[in-house]
Simulated scan of single mutants.
Amino acid sequence: MSSGVCLRVLRAAGASPAASSGSWSRVRLPADPRHAPRRGLSASGRGGTMNVFNREMKKQQKQWSASLQDGHQYDYLRDEVGGRVADRVYDIVRMFPLALDIGGGKSHIAEHLSKDVVERLFLTDVSEKTLKRSRRSEIPTHHVLADEEFLPFKENTFDLVVSSLSLHWINDLPGALRQIQQVLKPDGVFIGAMVGGETLYELRCSLQLAETEREGGFSPHVSPYTAVTDLGNLLGRAGFSMLTVDVDDVQVNYPGIIEVMTDLQGMGESNCAWNRKSMLHRDTILAAEAIYKEMYGNEDGSIPATFEILYMIGWKPHESQAKPAKRGSANVSFGDLSKISQPTNTNTS
């Protein structure tokens, strides 16, 4: 596991809709919880799977995002991460006859791939409007409306499965990874990227401090994320072998906190956790803005927002794959190796 190079992108002032809006007293998040289904156990019925995220609200957020006429201006993060996932596909010197992109959105991965690598592609997303706005690709692509939590494919179907910035909204991530492993052919590979770790810690901390000061307590406004230390274990439990996990920090600079929140909405990445607070008062936002700039602000007056991207690669086991030696089969001990590595004193007199 290694830390990647930090990417710095500057979102121009006035580029976001909220940057030029008039006076306001509060900001409402995209969907009203009164119209959402009740929280509880996952609809899958798998024993004890907690329903952390309102999947119907996430669908509505993505539908709204896809309906924006200028929605392309919010694709910068998905484009960047999609390109990095495609780079990992190219690192594997192999032709993939049939591939699956889970939560593929507007083909942010496929647009970086060629027919020399993938012959046919199935692109899925929970949002119909997002699928309709998929970009053209030279790879023959079949669009499938499907929830990432319930893949409608037979076992041993795909040679490659990819996913970019979608799995962090899954309620049952272990179950979703097991499904991915099942739809892969033996010796097939899964390459994915998801938001995790300390993503948006600047926004999270600023809002918590502001709410505590102005309202006497705070509510979560940023989604809970998977820790990188847990990801390898989850992949192993799902049945993957030859695991690789690494991390990249993507830092985006914004004019202010309103632009951060507006872009998250435009991406379809607003919080949809059941325990979120749907309203932010004007005084709280003004206080959060001041705290954000004081604690994290850049010299030019902009503020950074950090996205920690977790990349994962896992293979479906096959007899042709290299296997670790059996425990106890070594014929040299670490003690012997340490003796060999010690320098030998030479008398030069």
Score class of each variant (00 low, 15 high):
F334I: 13
S42C: 12
D230S: 13
H318W: 07
F334V: 14
H281W: 01
A290T: 15
Q61G: 00
L68M: 11
I92K: 12
L100V: 11
L68D: 11
M261S: 03
M194Q: 12
C272E: 09
L209P: 01
E80I: 08
G14C: 04
S42H: 13
L203V: 10
L121D: 10
L10K: 10
P174G: 09
Q60D: 13
A193Q: 02
E56M: 01
G83K: 04
Q321N: 10
E319K: 09
L41G: 12
G175C: 02
I191H: 05
L10N: 12
T130N: 02
H72D: 15
G22D: 13
T141C: 06
R78A: 12
R26I: 07
E202I: 06
H168Y: 11
D116T: 12
Q208Y: 04
G256K: 07
R26S: 15
I309F: 01
D159I: 07
T226M: 05
E211V: 09
A110K: 02
A86Y: 06
G232Q: 09
S107R: 11
Y311E: 11
P324A: 11
T124F: 00
S3M: 09
A146R: 03
T130M: 14
K316R: 06
A31D: 13
K132I: 00
S44Y: 06
G48L: 04
Y311R: 09
E111A: 00
Q69H: 11
D75P: 00
D336P: 00
S21T: 15
K316A: 03
I139N: 05
R133M: 10
G266W: 05
S20W: 01
G48H: 08
R214G: 02
H112A: 07
W315G: 03
R55L: 07
E128A: 12
H142C: 05
F334S: 14
S302R: 10
S206M: 04
I285G: 05
G4F: 00
Q63I: 05
K154C: 10
E138R: 06
V250D: 10
N51M: 09
F53T: 13
R84D: 12
D91L: 04
F53C: 07
V85I: 08
S206D: 10
R237V: 05
A210G: 06
P33R: 08
S2V: 12
G196W: 04
L29D: 14
A330F: 00
E294C: 04
R39P: 08
K326C: 08
T346V: 15
L131T: 10
E269T: 07
V332P: 03
V183L: 05
K293D: 05
H112G: 00
